[in-house]
Design a binder for these strands. Structure first.
Length: 114
DNA sequence: AACATGACGTATT
DNA sequence: TAATACGCCATGT
């Protein structure tokens, strides 16, 4: 483990842990919220190292599909966990649902304007 | 140093 | 809408 990974993972996990139940974030969104824009691929690495207690299943692709191979064991587990908290699917894609204000804050931070 | 890899994202066809 | 091409960037070899 490099020092970079340790600090990066820490920030990323912190963001993921704050995603409200029933809501999802994209890898790129998590990266940006953690202060590392363009690090979507690094987020996936951090997820593979994430502690099981983390709601890792709330992180999905930007196109609202799951990142695992369709039909794989991991895919089914993630889909089940999400459905379990009310996330709806249609043809392998998560049905768009309104983002909570809470999630918006995670993404953009407290409103700096106005 | 060079190349492959990955739970990705965006632009272009 | 779907498939491809590129861009991205730390890591492992």
């Amino acid at each position: 483990m490099t020092e970079f990974q340790k600090s990066f993972d820490r920030k990323v996990w912190q963001v993921v842990a704050s995603i409200p139940s029933g809501q999802v974030m994209g890898y790129g969104e998590v990266a940006r919220a953690a202060g590392f824009p363009r690090y979507s691929r690094m987020v996936s690495s951090a997820m593979s190292r994430s502690p099981t207690a983390l709601p890792w299943f709330r992180v999905v692709r930007s196109n609202r599909t799951l990142a695992f191979e369709a039909g794989s064991e991991n895919y089914r587990e993630q889909a089940q966990l999400l459905k379990q908290e009310g996330v709806r699917f249609e043809g392998g894609k998560i049905i768009e649902q309104p983002r909570s204000d809470e999630l918006d804050k995670i993404l953009w931070g407290p409103p700096a304007d106005k």
